[in-house]
Design a protein around this nucleic acid. Structure first.
Length: 617
RNA sequence: CGGGGUGUAGCUUAGCCUGGUAGAGCGCCUGGUUUGGGACCAGGAGGUCGUAGGUUCGAAUCCUAUCGCCCCGACCA
């Protein structure tokens, strides 16, 4: 029989490191700083701009290889392992079953999937390295940016009966994305660690249950790692699917804007956010008079039309934008004062869309940008259009002004229902702070956030493409209903630092700290001091803590600065002063207070504190 | 990919405008003095000035090209 301790002594497997109900601990055995490797820096690297990126490098957690490529140094790796383990536990609790799929994907899987055109842009192609060229008869691989295209065929092959559903498979592994612009260290990297889960259900209701289970698991995960992440409604993007939530860590340096109202609890990514700006019971205005064309030489902007002599306020102008969706142009009409939220065009169902160029616009509408409009009869070649989509807010205008599709001319008294050939109304505008919340009518606010997780209810988009079907109890075949879920593990590590640091360094939450207890031995050459440190370390370890002993031959100032920098939650100081007075100093990283604990009590005291922390982990 | 910046020792950088053959701080090595919030003294090692061309008697410095990195925009966990 092999005991857990023996297994750990041999390097053990991950599974045996689990200590149910006691938080997360790594293979323990105290580390001596002098023999470990924590390369701290006094100065910030010149290529880091934000606090968390600087601290990642200064505290010796990571080192850069190239743009968006980082080595996890020993301390950083420990944090990653702790986050990974908590994530594993919570996803399993939420019904996930762990497996691991290849990082190298045959390109055929992606070609068969529903988003090859869009996804290939961010994928690295993996050629044979030999001469840098892939021969025509060699297989072509891509490095996996995510795994729907691998897991769906797997499930199609393995699961054919409703009896085997639902299933939710997950892995925690490295992902590769050729980000156009890597940013801020681990925030947006080319290679990063992600937890990705994929749920397969027999019914839509089941899929919603799986989705909710994952949402709950995410909330538990972020709570346990000590990150304040909020779930916000989000756009589904290239992933597709019917609805989704993003998990955001509020931070100024985040890439996303969250629109929210504290009281009502409404929170959405700006790409998705809507407001109650347009009342549900709005009545369309009566026409104010006949359409009238007027000359506007040289006027090609909303602002120019607002100025004298025309003086048409932006709220009364129609803005007509031309886009190309899957090769065919279409129009989007907004109020002059509103901005298009491009992501919202995703709801129109085009696989790929982009703004049209001036050259593409004139043959269809008959004028250059600046004089465009969507009034019936003025469009030169209406049959070329894939549609005319109008933002609901233009109904607030009633009678307004728009381009005449004739260079240098505009039309006034344009009435939405009478004059515009709208294919479909929708929500296409960007919400602005201060607009009424759809839930409560209170003003909406905006703040920046870091997206650390995302959950999607996918529907049957992928099961259709790969033929993932099951047979029900009536011998009928149906498509499986899917969901997919991601947590950026490495990004989360940085988000935690961004959220939890001060001027001196990182302040790790207990559960993800690389070590829980740091024992600073100011005079490591004094045998009694080191003996005491080891005794305390053993007591702390027995209570479940990971312990680091700073036994370096450095001056006290250096040790304290480094201690603050690397952010270990509980610091004990053993110095000659204290030894003389018969005390050890105890200090939490998150507080300024120093407690003096008598030598006789220190082991029990530390053990009690660790036990308490581990219990609530 | 567009716009802006930058590249000098392991790290942070000065020098570049106005060409004359590279300097500092930190770190590292040796010795000594120190020892409760990034010590001090003395000595020492370490640099193809991103790379390739060009101008020049002479280039870190001027010109051209190229590569890397950072920041702002569109995308993502």
């Amino acid at each position: 029989m092999v005991t857990g301790d023996q297994r750990r002594a041999r390097g053990g497997s991950q599974i045996n490191l689990l200590r149910p109900g006691r938080g997360v601990s790594l293979p323990n055995f105290m580390k001596l700083w002098s023999q470990y490797f924590i390369p701290t820096l006094k100065e910030s690297p010149s290529d880091a701009e934000i606090a968390s990126h600087k601290l990642l490098v200064r505290a010796g957690l990571v080192r850069k290889l190239g743009g968006g490529l980082y080595t996890y140094m020993p301390l950083g790796l420990r944090v990653m392992q702790k986050i990974t383990q908590i994530c594993r536990e919570e996803i399993e609790r939420g019904g996930g079953i762990e497996l691991e799929m290849p990082h190298l994907h045959p390109v055929e899987n992606w070609q068969q999937g529903p988003r090859w055109a869009a996804a290939r842009e961010i994928m690295f192609r993996a050629d044979s390295a030999g001469d840098g060229k892939r021969g025509p008869r060699e297989p072509e691989y891509v490095l996996g940016p995510t795994h729907e295209e691998v897991v769906t065929p797997l499930v199609k092959q393995e699961i054919t009966s409703y009896r085997d559903l639902p299933k939710n498979f997950f892995q925690i592994a490295t992902k590769f994305r050729n980000e156009i612009r890597p940013r801020f260290g681990l925030m947006r990297a080319r290679e990063f660690v992600m937890m990705d889960a994929y749920s397969f259900d027999a019914t839509d209701d089941g899929a919603i249950k799986s989705y909710q289970a994952m949402k709950a698991a995410y909330e538990a995960f972020f709570r346990r790692i000590g990150a304040q992440a909020i779930a916000v409604e989000a756009d589904t993007g290239v992933m597709g699917g019917s609805f989704s939530h993003e998990f955001m860590v509020p931070a100024e340096i985040g890439d996303d804007d969250v629109i929210y109202n504290e009281e009502s609890g409404y929170a959405a990514n700006r790409e998705k956010a809507t407001s109650a700006l347009v009342p549900a019971d709005l009545k369309d205005s009566e026409p104010a008079g006949a359409l009238e064309e007027f000359a506007t030489p040289g006027v090609v902007t909303i602002a120019a039309l607002e100025a004298a002599p025309y003086s048409v306020v932006a709220d009364k102008q129609f803005k007509t934008l031309v886009y190309v969706g899957d090769g065919k142009p279409f129009l989007v009409i907004l109020r002059g004062c509103d901005e298009l939220e491009e992501a919202k065009l995703g709801s129109l169902g085009f696989t790929l869309f982009r703004a049209a160029t001036a050259d593409e616009i004139e043959p269809v509408l008959g004028a250059k940008p600046g004089s465009l409009g969507a009034v019936k009869g003025t469009i030169k070649n209406p049959s070329a259009l894939a549609g005319i989509y109008a933002d609901g807010a233009i109904r607030l205008i009633g009678n307004g002004t728009t381009g005449a599709n004739k260079d240098g001319f505009h039309l006034r008294n344009v009435n939405v229902t009478r004059d515009l050939a709208v294919t479909k109304f929708g929500d296409f505008r960007r919400v602005r702070p201060g607009e009424p919340d759809i839930k409560s009518g209170r003003p909406l606010q905006v703040r920046r956030g870091i997206e650390v997780g995302h959950i999607f209810k996918l529907g049957t988009k992928y099961s259709e493409k790969f033929g993932a079907m099951y047979t029900d109890d009536q011998k009928q075949s149906h498509l499986m209903v899917m969901g997919c879920y991601g947590i950026g593990i490495s990004r989360t590590m940085q988000a935690v630092i961004e959220q939890s640091h001060d001027n001196d360094g990182i302040v790790w939450p207990w559960n993800v700290a690389p070590f829980h207890v740091l024992i600073c031995v100011l005079d490591p050459l004094v045998a009694e001091a080191m003996d005491l440190a080891k005794k305390i370390a053993v007591a702390a370890e027995k209570a479940g803590a990971d312990v680091l002993i700073d036994d370096r031959a450095e001056r006290p100032g250096v040790k304290f600065k480094d201690a603050d920098l690397i952010g270990i939650p509980l610091r004990l100081t053993i110095g000659s002063k204290g030894m003389k007075d018969g005390i050890v100093e105890l200090k939490w990283r998150s507080s300024k207070d120093v407690a003096k604990v008598p030598l006789a009590e220190i082991e029990a005291r530390v053990a009690a504190l660790v036990t308490e922390k581990q219990a609530s982990a």
